[in-house]
Design a protein around this nucleic acid. Structure first.
Length: 849
RNA sequence: GCCCAAGUGGCGGAAUGGUAGACGCGGUGGAUUCAAAAUCCACUUCUGUAACAGGAGUGCCGGUUCGAGUCCGGCCUUGGGUACCA
């Protein structure tokens, strides 16, 4: 009996696939194409279990599609720009470029042994000038098409290091290196006009039938379409010049009678105008600018306000004046940056009104006789009918939705305001004040202003001679790189030193894979043939930003002629896998800042030198937290097939898994078992007859059916459970050679997407034609799937009390008769008659007594 | 804070509204062996029983249904996202 030696088998078959070029994708109009893509990795340096899980899933799909006759495109690349490379340069010296390309080489070396069906000839990294140069070309085309503009936006500013910080670099409101209190600061930045497409991006979600409903819902909420009223309060005499009106937007115009104050953002033009000659007010605005820019930070900060002393007239009653407050919870970039507060029906306004002793006026009540004095904000669902006591529009009893519509109609008729649809989605700021990214291809000229670079000058390459010893963007302090000639007038000018958000890089790489070496961003024929991505697979953490940005980019690329109309929604089907999580091990350095440790350096909660680590419960594996596990050990010890089988078998793909080391051994044992069965069959007498051929073949057809369903529905763990079952049948069977030989070949094929090397080995041992990889997928015989008889449970009042075995095609009334005659039912009936009998054919019998 | 998920044996998990716990891990017992490893077989939710029988049970509280892990309402806990982590 030959032994199962994965290292030998795997190397041999990988060489065979390479030699045949089975994974090299070539356009072939005679075959249906299938584009399967896993979200490409950030080259952190080592692959981790999350990668193995992600790529193995994609590989199962890709290999299954190859065997069902598709022309498969399955590429791989590197999301190679980003902060960790700069952080590494700062922490350990070296250059981001060397660090990144070394990491890519390491990770490619770690991925190749997995035997993935990847077309490596299409590989690229986003930090290749050949890639980001094309991205700069896209930028210029988008600029011409009016898809990009410049405006102010606030960033996290570290006043000690004099640098912009990423949200991740702000810890408890302080800069991660300096420890200084972070503040918000306005910068002029480049933006993609994604908000112009809010309506369309929202509407098109409905067509994404093969996306998870939760992702569509998250995107819908993120885009945040709302219908409301926009109108202006007129200010009374004491307002500064040019501020005789304050525009507000409200989604609850039905509560206008409950307005007790007007709130404006600290960044509102009126607030800025007042700051000039009111020191207290300016101090308050400065206070509001403390802290970071994240929504979570802004929303959870204590709600504070400042009475400007200005008042406005209520639109319905101009003698009724409302105070104007500056409030820290009002965002300038949503709506108009100003609101009216209705404390009776908004939790936040209630809190604010209580704090500043403002009136709380109910406009609707749960019942007609309810006390209008409220002790907490009354916020029923908009679909709930309530009693409007101070109603000015619509019926007294109506739902919030009806009242809002009536209020808008009323205000429009009176000329007070207009009903408008607004979106929460903001424009996408793409400027980053960092080195390791795609340079924004524009030039600042004293005479011509901001001038786009000429396309023939692309790529604008990053200079290599930079240092990271001082915080901030090295491009800013580079002695020569900035100096250039104005593309318009030719005079000396300065390059833009901001680089692009790395989300830009990942917003079109899927399109680039269709013609990765082209000297234009895409090539028409290739894009038309390969787009869209038929199956996209990646982490749920990308549900909103990456996927929304990519949807926007596909539209922008279509407008600028880089993608066909059909690619407007680039991902036909999406599967979001769960994350691989792990505990975090943390110690503190001498300044009290956190230092993270790899799991391999921690034993029993201690470092090698005996220092105790603080353990934080499992979260997403991340390079910065160092809670990553190395799959290479498993591959080295048991082979790639074991690693692949194991990551697929243990958990449903969409769920997070906490990595534990046990279980890999079991996977290995199982593959050994299958190998041994194959060897045993190969050594059988070819004319051997046996018993139970039909049972074996029925089990085989069931396995074909179940595994096919499992693979097509991402039920990989369920498919593997069925394969365990079928293997157990094969282990015990006494069937003849012909049936067993047929069954083992089918087993090899069914396992091939998951354990391709072992499958090829068995296929060859059993004398299969060609490669198992390209052999046509087996088909289940429908007739072999139906059993002659079924066992039905009998319930009495919903509780299982017995069972009967009946022919599968027995009519309902006959089944009922048999069920009623059983001892269990007779005992429960005690001579009486049942109230009701439910017979679900093939399923269950329930007797109600 | 807000948006989206998840919660089932000792553990990972299975279950088109229809027998809760498939399959795997771990555990217990057995076969094989001089012995062990490996392999194979059986049992393994809790409670209860000599064995049956019976009872309880899918985070918590309530509801819909002949029937709920699954659907609805309200909570709790954990995870993801929250626009400069990728």
């Amino acid at each position: 009996m030959t032994e199962y030696t994965p290292s030998e088998i795997e190397a041999r078959w990988q060489a065979a696939w390479d030699k045949e070029g089975v994974f090299t994708a070539v356009r072939d109009e005679t075959k249906p194409k299938y584009y399967v893509l896993e979200m490409f990795p950030y080259p952190s340096g080592r692959i981790h279990m999350g990668h193995v899980r992600n790529y193995t899933m994609g590989d199962v799909i890709a290999r299954y599609k190859i065997s069902t006759g598709h022309n498969v495109l399955h590429p791989m690349g590197w999301d190679a720009f980003g902060m960790p490379a700069e952080n590494a340069a700062m922490a350990i010296g070296g250059h981001p470029k060397t660090w990144t390309y070394d990491n890519i080489a390491d990770m490619r070396g770690q991925m190749k042994p997995l035997g993935l069906s990847i077309d490596w000839s299409r590989e690229f990294a986003t930090c290749d000038p050949e890639y980001y140069g094309q991205q700069q070309a896209l930028f210029l085309d988008f600029l011409v098409a009016g898809l990009i503009h410049r405006k102010n936006a606030s960033v996290n500013w570290d006043p000690e290091d004099m640098t912009v910080l990423a949200n991740e670099q702000v810890i408890d409101g302080k800069g991660w290196r300096s420890g200084a209190e972070v503040e918000k600061r306005d910068l002029t930045q480049w933006f993609f006009k994604i908000s112009d497409y809010a309506d369309e991006l929202n509407a098109a979600l409905k067509g994404l039938d093969n996306w998870p409903a939760k992702v569509r819902l998250m995107q819908e909420n993120w885009i945040g379409e709302s219908r409301g009223l926009q109108f202006a309060f007129s200010t009374t005499a004491n307002a500064p010049k040019d501020h005789d009106r304050i525009e507000v937007y409200t989604t609850r115009p039905d509560t206008l009678n409950g307005a007790s104050f007007v709130g404006i953002s600290p960044d509102h033009p009126l607030a800025k105008a007042l700051e000039a000659d009111n020191a207290d007010l300016a101090a308050f605005c400065a206070e509001c600018r403390k802290g970071g820019t994240t929504a979570a930070e802004v929303e959870t900060a204590e709600k504070i306000g400042f009475n400007t002393g200005i008042t406005v007239r209520h639109p319905f009653d101009t003698d009724h004046h409302l105070p104007v407050y500056i409030a820290n919870f009002i965002l300038m970039d949503y709506g108009t940056g100003a609101i009216f507060g209705c404390p009776a029906h908004d939790v936040r306004d209630f809190e604010f009104a209580t704090k500043y002793e403002l009136p709380i006026i109910s406009t609707f009540l749960p019942t007609e006789d309810a006390d209008p004095k409220v002790t907490e904000a009354y916020v029923p669902m908009k679909t709930e009918k309530v009693f409007y006591n101070g109603g000015f529009a619509g019926k007294q009893w109506q739902t919030g939705e009806q009242a809002i519509a009536a209020a808008i109609d009323f205000c429009e008729a009176k000329g007070i305001g207009q009903g408008v649809t607004k979106y929460r989605l903001r424009d996408w700021g793409l400027s980053r004040q960092r080195y390791w990214g795609c340079p924004i291809p524009v030039v600042h000229c004293d005479d011509c202003g901001v001038v786009p670079e000429k396309k023939e000058n692309l790529p604008i390459e990053l200079p290599f001679d930079v240092t990271f010893d001082i915080p901030g963007n090295p491009l800013d302090r580079h002695p020569t790189w900035r100096n250039t000639a104005c593309p318009s007038c030719g005079k000396a000018a300065l390059r833009e030193t901001d680089t692009m958000d790395t989300f830009v890089d990942s917003s079109w790489y899927f399109a680039r894979f269709t013609s990765p070496q082209a000297d234009t961003p895409t090539v028409k024929e290739d894009a038309e043939y390969w787009m869209n991505v038929d199956q996209y697979i990646g982490g749920i953490e990308h549900a909103i930003l990456h996927l929304l940005y990519s949807r926007f980019f596909a539209r922008a690329m279509q407008i600028t002629g880089h993608l066909p109309e059909v690619a407007i929604e680039p991902f036909k089907a999406l599967f979001t896998q769960g994350m691989v999580t792990h505990e975090i091990y943390e110690t503190k350095d001498e300044r009290g800042r956190p230092v993270y440790h790899l799991p391999e350096d921690v034993t029993d909660g201690k470092l090698k030198d005996g220092t105790e680590v603080q353990i934080t419960p499992s979260t997403k594996m991340s390079k910065s937290k160092k809670n990553v596990v190395d799959p290479l050990g498993i591959i080295a010890n048991y082979g790639a097939d074991t690693a692949r089988w194991f990551v697929l078998s243990d958990s449903p793909p969409e769920r997070d898994i906490e990595w534990t080391a046990s279980g890999a051994e079991a996977a290995y044992k199982h593959l050994n078992r299958v190998h041994n069965i194959s060897t045993r069959i190969a050594e059988m007498d070819k004319d051997a007859k046996g018993t139970g051929d039909d049972d074996l073949l029925r089990a085989m057809h069931k396995a074909i059916h179940d595994v096919t369903v499992g693979v097509e529905s991402f039920g990989f763990n369920a498919a593997i459970a069925k394969l365990y079952g079928f293997t157990a049948v094969m282990q015990k069977t006494k069937a003849g050679y012909a049936a067993q030989h047929k069954a083992i070949k089918v087993l090899a094929q069914l396992m091939a997407p998951m354990t391709p090397h072992l499958a090829e080995d068995i296929w060859a041992t059993q004398g299969g034609t060609g490669l198992a990889t390209t052999a046509p997928w087996p088909k289940a015989d429908e007739e072999m799937l139906v059993d002659d008889s079924v066992t039905l449970p009998i319930q009495i009042n919903g509780k299982r009390r017995g069972e009967i075995t009946v022919p599968a095609d027995m009519p309902k009334d006959a089944v009922e008769k048999l069920a009623l005659a059983t001892q269990a039912v007779q005992k429960a009936l005690v001579g009486g008659t049942p109230k009701k009998v439910i017979v679900v054919p093939g399923r269950i019998v329930n007797v109600v007594v």
